[in-house]
């Protein structure tokens, strides 16, 4: 009997939760704010779904309502991707060690 691909995805999901658990506990508390902004940026990888939605069908269908939702999602996710990574970068630049 074959295993449903869903089970594989579920395995990836659950293992990733465990990875996330251990990785995030190792994040130093002073970087918790950059952690939030970078998780924000990476969760915008949802843009992948937005692009598929926007480009679905033939080139005439891009003005259909479902494609429009895709384009709007691209816009929102793009704000987040650029905003999230850049603001994280800006914050991380500020963390400096004592000058010896």
């Amino acid at each position: 009997m074959e295993i449903d691909p869903f089970i594989f995805r579920l395995s990836i999901f659950i293992l990733s939760i465990f990875i996330g658990y251990y990785v995030v506990w190792s994040v130093t508390p002073s970087l918790h704010t950059p952690l939030m902004s970078v998780t924000n940026a990476i969760s915008s990888v949802i843009i992948v779904g937005a692009i598929i939605a926007a480009l679905a069908g033939s080139s005439e269908s891009i003005f259909e309502i479902s494609n429009t939702f895709g384009f709007l999602a691209i816009l929102l996710a793009a704000v987040n991707i650029f905003g999230g990574f850049l603001v994280t970068q800006r914050m991380l630049q500020m963390y400096k060690k004592k000058k010896k």
Binding site: R9, I12, F13, Y21, V23, V24, L35, I42, V48, G49
Partner: peptide, 22 residues
């Protein structure tokens, strides 16, 4: 899961557990 996309599943799990720990 809907899109059957590993990058999104992994990221979702990471962010989900990160927020929960915080």
């Amino acid at each position: 899961f809907t899109l059957e996309n590993t990058a999104l599943i992994i990221t979702g799990a990471l962010v989900g557990s990160s927020g929960a720990i915080l």
